[in-house]
């Protein structure tokens, strides 16, 4: 297999890495670069646990080849925190008991972050729509929706 050299921005860091064209973005992040917040839940775009941001938009990293991100900016949950401090939306998720096992949390939080960037005051329906690609089997979703609604009202 012929390898390719790619350069991209990962969570504010410049990365240059040589990879095979068969490698997915998810595999590169987890196995080559040690960025573990994106998870593999279904490997075919159905569950959303592998969500990362590509140039500011959420994508399924299991359906993106690593070579495709050459020259782009990749942001994972690790990259949205400043100085290792939780963002207010992450804090709202803690305050609202929004996660149980926590496996879906990274993808869910990135989807919520994208929503709030596009629409700072979403209503319940808009939140449900925006999160509908991120599966959670534990919570029944309402604590997640509550966290976002609470966040839009400026916190508890």
């Amino acid at each position: 297999m012929k390898k390719k050299m790619i350069n991209f921005n990962l969570n504010g860091r410049k990365i240059a890495v040589e990879i095979e064209p068969q490698l997915t973005l998810l595999e590169m992040l987890r196995d080559r670069l040690g960025v573990k917040s994106p998870k593999c839940g279904c490997d075919r775009g159905d569950c959303g646990t592998c969500t990362v941001m590509l140039d500011g938009r959420t994508v399924r990293s299991c359906l993106v080849l690593a070579v495709e991100v050459d020259g782009l900016t990749v942001t994972t949950l690790e990259g949205i925190m400043k100085d290792d401090k939780l963002t207010p939306i992450q804090q709202a998720f803690i305050d609202n008991n929004s996660f149980q096992c926590g496996f879906c949390a990274p993808g869910m939080i990135l989807s919520a972050t994208e929503l709030l960037k596009k629409n700072p005051k979403p209503n319940k329906e808009e939140i449900q729509e925006a999160l509908s690609g991120n599966l959670c089997r534990c919570t029944g979703y309402s604590p997640i929706i509550d966290a976002i609604l609470e966040f839009t009202k400026g916190g508890k």
């Binding site: 959303g48 938009r57 959420t58 509908s132």
Partner: peptide, 12 residues
């Protein structure tokens, strides 16, 4: 377009 899959797919 809004009824196609979900945001993370539609972005791509």
């Amino acid at each position: 377009a809004k009824m196609v899959a979900s945001v993370g797919i539609r972005n791509r």
